[in-house]
């Protein structure tokens, strides 16, 4: 079926099977490979994208369900975003495969509530990292939480 997707501000017409998940449309049709396949059941968060400010695990939603809605992938962010800056400053990634998902999940929390606390961020970041970069992620979100409070 022909659907229209709005990804990172650009509109794309794609002809896809009825129930093809958004993840595979992004990766195969649009060559946006920042969203990763990790589990296919919405358990790991490697495929995280933002749709209208909400965190969506793109492996578990059909592309047609989100046609027309504003989709943002990691490619929308160019490392000047505060979350990415914190991630680079704290040297978070190891293998890095899961990190775009973490960055987007943290971004969504802070967009909704710029004063989100470290604990709120920890609770919201349910993604998995097999390299165990969690201490560095905590350092990055602590840096973000503290800078938000300072700015307030």
């Amino acid at each position: 079926m022909l659907i229209e997707l709005t990804v990172n501000g650009a509109r794309h017409s794609v002809d896809v099977p009825e129930d093809k998940p958004l993840l595979w449309v992004l990766r195969e049709e649009l060559a946006l490979t920042g969203a990763k396949y990790g589990c296919g059941i919405g358990a790991c968060g490697a495929c995280t994208v933002l749709i209208g400010g909400e965190v969506v695990r793109s492996c578990s939603v059909a592309a047609k369900e989100v046609a027309g809605r504003p989709i943002r992938t990691i490619e929308n962010f160019d490392n000047r975003h505060p979350v990415q800056k914190a991630w680079v400053e704290q040297q978070v990634p190891q293998c890095g495969y899961c990190q775009p998902g973490f960055v987007l999940a943290a971004t969504a929390v802070l967009e909704k509530n710029p004063k989100a606390t470290e604990a709120e961020l920890v609770a919201a970041l349910t993604n998995l990292c097999r390299c165990g970069s969690y201490d560095a992620i905590r350092a990055a979100i602590r840096q973000l939480a503290e800078s938000k409070h300072k700015g307030a």
């Binding site: 920042g34 969203a35 990691i74 490392n79 680079v88 990634p93």
Partner: peptide, 26 residues
């Protein structure tokens, strides 16, 4: 700073699963 970090934060890092070639099949 590790040289591989920025690409792993902005999604540009290329893993095996990200290989894209003309006419690619899966």
């Amino acid at each position: 700073a590790r040289l591989d970090v920025p690409g792993k934060v902005d999604g540009s890092a290329r893993f095996g699963i990200d290989v894209r070639l003309p006419g690619l099949r899966y």
